[in-house]
Amino acid sequence: MSTVERVLLASPRPAVKTRRAHLSRESRHGLAFLAPFLLLFAAFQVIPVGYAVWQAVHRTVQSGLGFGGSTTTFVGLDNFVRVVEDPAVRAAVLRMLLFGVVQVPFMLGLALLMALLFDSTLARLKRFFQLGAFLPFAVPGVIGAILWSFLYLPGISPVVGVLTALHLPHGFLGPRAVLWSIANITTWQWTGYNMLIIYAALQALPRELIEAARVDGASGLQVSLRIKVPLVRPALVLTAVFSIIGTLQLFSEPTIVRSLTGNVTATYTPIMAAYYAAFGRNDANYAAAIAVTLAVVTFALSYAFMRIAQRGQR
């Protein structure tokens, strides 16, 4: 479950404020019911995150040739300063922002369009196309990336073969094109998923509202744009936040494509930069600092987006 979902589920908590003695038995029972969750939450969220923060404010250094062991010292925010100053990390974040600014609106627009079509009475073979649109999500991400990689690869791909024969551009793995080739994989994979969320929201709309609009003489297009889209706004905000988070955490697709072209560098995305710091440079402290920074940035961006989206609603 994502943070966002958790926040959404947790927020309407009954705010019961009574004297402690009064509720002690009930709260003990409540605690007992909560215990399994709290235990797992502590083991898999609180402790790891706490440990990452601890790692991020320490540094492991060796001396001489480095064959005589190492020492770990507290360095405060030094690692975070390194993250901010690291041109590779900065380039990775900017790259993902560019990616997100283009890919997220495109994917969500497509998902919205598909959801509206499925929701309208126009669509034929609704079930079939819906399943078709959702199917890529059921394919494991790495497998999808491998399949697409084969379609991008010169000498193997029939697509590249045809494009080459027709003298059309075919450099899917070129230094600039490769980012959009990756965007294509994620769009293919996630449009159906987002469509489903929006479609579910559309299905939940009160039908009387739409009928009333029709009685008032609104066309199909007007019903869609003036009634349906504003009403599914929360679903759109939700999918947008998920997509922002997902974009900043892009890892497996570029990692797969990296095995085919050096144009995807070791620090292509922020998560890849963290992975490379941990397992390429053996610097777990720096990797933790990148991870914590990224978590903060992701949180800030998601929060800012939600605030802006809410302000517009009023």
């Binding site: 991400g141 790495v142 988070i245």
Partner: peptide, 8 residues
């Protein structure tokens, strides 16, 4: 990580 949307 399959990278995209569902959650951090």
């Amino acid at each position: 990580g399959n990278g995209h949307p569902p959650g951090p």
